[in-house]
Amino acid sequence: MRHFIGIDIGSTCTKTVVLDEEKNLVKTWLLPTGWSSIDTAEAVKKELDAANFNIEKCPVVATGYGRIAVPYADKTITEITCHAKGAMYLQNSDNLLVIDIGGQDTKIICVENGLVKDFVMNDKCSAGTGRFLEVMANSMAMRPNDLCALAEFGGGVHISSMCTVFAESEVVSLVGRGEKKENIAFAVVDSIVKKVASQVSRIETEKMCTCLTGGLCDCDYMKKALGNELHCEISSQPNARFAGAIGAALMAMNIKGKGEER
């Protein structure tokens, strides 16, 4: 059986997957990216070795912002293309609007008939990204996913600033004023949702199935809030955080001259 490896080095997490030639998801790993993408790539290699996947023999595609730091990759492909492929695989659909809320950037990808038709990415600023959530969660001494879950029970408070630095001081002063935690959490998620929705509005699409990939895909309230703002159902699959890596592994199937038995 041949195997195909996809590695997605994101700013906070590194996702690795192995697909077999029938496109079955054989194995997944999640590692923190840490300071150096090069060290992370080394760590991934060790994991693969330990599980008996030989990078000399299996085609490897790297994606994500650290993609160039994987010396043993046969090819690098951007996370836009990979997330699109991965989402199509997970959703089993060729027409999708993919929302990927990543650690450092958020991408909206419009896929039509199996091809990327258009995409937008946030600019330098981290509003509407996982980073924004993380900073706010830190200033409330919470974990990002817990903040998301708590947000469902709050309301009535809003953060006006889009800039992460200013927004953080808004949160700090809300905490100082004794505002209820769930209300602040609500405000944080609301700010992300609004920012993401404004990015979505820059893409012209027919009404199509919208799905969430990336680190926040497990957060039900995020999906619900996004769905309310965008007036649609947001679907997500259990392995959606691996979408980029899955897409990379699917692209590895196109690499010729490699990929014998492992």
Binding site: Y65, I77, T78, T81, D118
Partner: peptide
């Protein structure tokens, strides 16, 4: 922003 631009441009060209 060079790296971010590179990702966008690469993705555009892949597209």
């Amino acid at each position: 922003d060079a790296e971010q631009l590179r990702t966008r441009v690469e993705a555009f060209i892949e597209m």
